[in-house]
Amino acid sequence: MRTIEYLSDPLLRGHLLPPLVAALALAICGSLLSVLVVLKRMSFIGQGVSHSAFGGVGLAALLSGLISGGLSPVAQYAVVLVFCAGAALAVATLGDRKSLGMDTAIGVLLVSSMALGAVLLSIASRMARSGGTSPPIQGWESILFGSILGVGWADAAVACGVSATVCLAIGWWRRPLLLWAFDEAAAPAFGVPVARMKLTLVLLLAATIVTGMKVAGVVLATALLVLPGAAAIAISRRLLPVFVCSVAVGVVGLLGGMILSFERGWPTGACIVLVLTVIVALAWVVGRARSVRARPGQGPAVNPLESA
């Protein structure tokens, strides 16, 4: 296996270790968030925010071209993060209004950000060509579907920082977050600052997506925020086991997907999503079988997510 070969060679290790560290960090924070995303039915918000990151990437590319010396990787992250956070806030605000539903708000934002990103990237690469320098951002495919090659130690450090922040925030606010997520109508009557909880969750989502984008790509980053939670909820109906399962699924899926991508040379994001999908399918089969066994003669238990 090339993976073991690379990891055991001190010279080659530097190519593979940073993406694996980044993936591990992302798997942990993305999986914790994904439980809330799935239960709160926010998958489409994740989708909207991750696609809007493409607009942020375009903006970062343009700024890199305009500023002499270009933007440092951390500054590029910051630009994309601010763009995504803005998009997430716009979705949260517009989606609240009765006139414009959440799905419409996301639909508009998603396509407009993608379009803006495409135009800005095109301008940036033309500027780079006429200036005789290399394009500030590598190919489209790696932006859309992720690439293991573009992940260096700086990206791994950012991923670890974001992951630690997300984990701390979820741990710190877990009680009000859960109360709000479980019962949004009653939570304000118990004094929970609902608007702040929503804002917190949306910002954590944006930060995770921006970091995950580098590994899994704009199109597939949202998978980290949906699939682990979906698998975990199919397996268990208890709070702590669901979070633990979700993290386990995320870690196996991300590391497995990366290794598959590295071994075969397939797009990284696609490999991660396919591995995670297999796990989700297995989890559904296991969950179904368990609920049938738990109530013999009554047929399979109804999944509350389907019946609600």
Binding site: L39, A186, P188, G191, S236, A308
Partner: peptide, 22 residues
């Protein structure tokens, strides 16, 4: 409400019953 004096019992359909809570 902030002091928890009012106990609100909402219509039952509004909570997310798929939550893995006991």
């Amino acid at each position: 409400c902030r002091n928890g004096i009012v106990g609100y019992v909402p219509q039952r359909t509004e909570a997310e019953l798929a939550f893995p809570l006991s």
